[in-house]
């Protein structure tokens, strides 16, 4: 660990500590905004762990998230909450592993379409099961877990994701993923088991998404498939991660904060225009900042330094 890394870790810890103080403001509005920002930070960062280096665009976040939500909703009356979170985490990983094995040999476009269809497929499946065997269409999640606790749990999850991401970036696995993103044929000829590396990383992001779904379940007291398995969520996560920059660990955070705040303002004043925001952000990414805000900032910084030196 060099001086730079130590500095980054200290900065991250300080930022996290500061963020943890948010509930002390006593504002329910700020807290609920904080939960949203923290949730998307965890989701977008873990999404970028896989998609950043490989350039595989996964639209499956909503599927894994919904899976986690349902694990908690189904088990809340029988098992302790922490155990359910663990089950959600494992279930997300297993689901991602299976999806990965089936699809990661597919080339880009087919992978995108399959992952998009996945959330819809699971949603239909859950609806069908509930209609046939369940007593209600939805499930009640009644706990005494407060918004503050959810917020702190999400911060802890964020810390975990950053640590895991930092570790992966330094590891041979992260290096292998970067090589795969450059040229998969060369990767294989360097001795890299390309399928295994991709599936492993995809499992990490699937587990985290399911965990987040589980953490958020108590926030909705009533859960039904249409809420839990949302395609919109998958799109938002992709847009935010790309907006910030998916090739750096803290890139997605830089996209999550402005996007969530804008989303909040727009959905407050023009509730029907949120899709428009999604579209505009998408155009911005494609035409103006293909490497994200962070990539653009790095570019400006380099230019300024060269100008000065």
């Amino acid at each position: 660990m060099n001086g730079n890394e130590l500095r980054n870790i200290l900065l991250a810890a300080a930022g996290l500590g500061l963020a943890a103080l948010l509930p002390l403001t006593g504002s329910g509005y700020l807290l609920s905004l904080g939960v949203t920002v923290a949730m998307y930070t965890v989701l977008a960062t873990s999404w970028a762990l896989f998609s950043g280096p490989t350039h595989y665009i996964s639209l499956a976040t909503g599927a894994f998230y919904g899976l986690g939500t349902y694990v908690v909703a189904v088990g809340i009356d029988t098992l302790p909450y922490p155990v359910l979170l663990l089950i959600a985490f494992v279930a997300g990983g297993v689901a991602a592993g299976l999806v990965g094995l089936a699809t990661l040999r597919l080339s880009g476009v087919y992978f995108v379409i399959f992952t998009l269809g996945l959330a819809e497929m699971i949603r239909q499946l859950v609806t069908w099961v509930q209609n046939n065997w369940g007593s209600h269409r939805g499930l009640y999640v009644l706990t005494d877990i407060t918004e503050e606790i959810i917020y702190w749990e999400l911060l802890a999850a964020a810390a975990l994701v950053y640590l895991v991401g930092w570790w992966i970036n330094r590891s041979r696995l992260g290096f292998a993923l970067r090589i795969i993103g450059n040229d998969e044929v060369v990767a294989a000829h360097c001795g890299i088991n390309t399928a295994r590396s991709k599936v492993l990383l995809f499992m990490v992001s699937g587990s985290v998404a399911a965990l987040v779904g589980g953490l958020l379940a108590p926030r909705w007291t009533y859960i039904e498939p249409a809420i839990a398995f949302s395609a919109m969520l998958s799109f938002q996560v992709v847009i935010m991660a790309l907006l910030g920059g998916a090739s750096r660990l803290w890139g997605p955070l830089v996209g999550v904060i402005p996007f969530t705040l804008l989303w909040e303002v727009i959905s407050g004043h023009f509730p029907n225009q949120t899709t428009l925001l999604l579209g505009v952000a998408f155009l911005l990414i494609v035409y103006v900042i293909p490497n994200g805000i962070l990539g653009r900032l790095e570019q400006l910084y380099r230019a300024a330094r060269e100008g000065a030196g």
């Binding site: 041979r172 290096f175 292998a176 970067r178 090589i179 993103g181 450059n182 060369v186 990767a187 360097c190 001795g191 890299i192």
Partner: peptide, 14 residues
């Protein structure tokens, strides 16, 4: 997207 040096590391890491 890798440096010259990392291109060589790619050859020996796996």
């Amino acid at each position: 997207t890798l440096s010259v040096f990392d291109n060589v590391i790619a050859g020996c890491a796996f």
